[in-house]
């Protein structure tokens, strides 16, 4: 592997660990490759967690900034993605708490936040959604809203599991909780979502 890197092989062929090590050594291209690999998944994860695209992008960028300054402390003990998602979910959870505090102190927030929090993001280019029917859009919005109302300790694992398609093991590592706890939280989260979505969304089927 070392030989491959020194031989000028493209960064795309390197593992996350190798890229992280190179970036920690000051290789900007390696850091760029890590961003290429993870900027979309991290943005999507944060978007599903916060249900707010602008904030999701903001926190995703912040995630990479934190990563950049923590690279020298990163060690290959577990998967790089785990490390990155942990930064992102910690940022997201503290953002959520900030929002709650703001809502507590903001009178107008009592009337406006609920609506704006749950407003479904419509991507500007909308490429992925172009062929989706209006019903699909409505259903997506209802699901996104349902996810956004889950308590954060259920919200993170179910997004990582069912949207980001992580394994239970990886999720346990991201959240630093027992495997069994992870599984039960995910099951509980699915149950909550089923209840929330039963009437409106599942009924459509």
């Amino acid at each position: 592997m070392d030989k491959a890197r020194n031989g000028g092989q493209t960064a795309a062929a390197l593992s996350d660990h190798e890229l992280a090590a190179a970036a920690a050594g000051g290789d900007e291209a390696a850091f760029g490759e890590l961003m290429d690999r993870y900027r979309n998944p991290i943005t999507n994860f944060l978007y599903r967690f916060l249900n707010d695209y602008e904030e999701a992008v903001d926190l995703a960028q912040e995630t990479f900034v934190r990563l950049y300054f923590a690279l020298d402390r990163y060690h290959a003990g577990y998967a790089f993605s785990t490390y990155l998602y942990r930064i992102a979910s910690n940022l997201a959870i503290s953002e959520l708490r900030k929002r709650k505090r703001r809502r507590l102190f903001s009178l107008t927030g009592l009337f406006t936040d609920d609506a704006s929090d749950t407003a479904e993001y419509q991507p500007a280019d909308g490429r992925r959604l172009q062929d989706a029917s209006f019903d699909d859009l409505q259903r997506s919005a209802a699901i996104a809203k349902a996810i956004a109302t889950l308590p954060e300790k259920y919200r993170v694992p179910i997004i990582l599991r069912d949207i980001e398609e992580m394994s239970y093991d990886e999720i346990s590592q991201v959240l630093e909780i027992e495997l069994g706890t992870t599984k039960s939280r995910i099951n509980r989260a699915r149950g909550m979502l089923r209840e929330k979505l039963d009437k409106e969304v599942l009924g459509l089927k």
């Binding site: 943005t43 992008v57 699915r190 979502l193």
Partner: peptide, 17 residues
């Protein structure tokens, strides 16, 4: 039922950076 929920979440449109 859980599988249905999981599939539903998985089918959600993804956003890009």
């Amino acid at each position: 039922e859980d599988r249905q929920v999981a599939a539903m979440l998985n089918a959600l449109p993804r956003v890009d950076a």
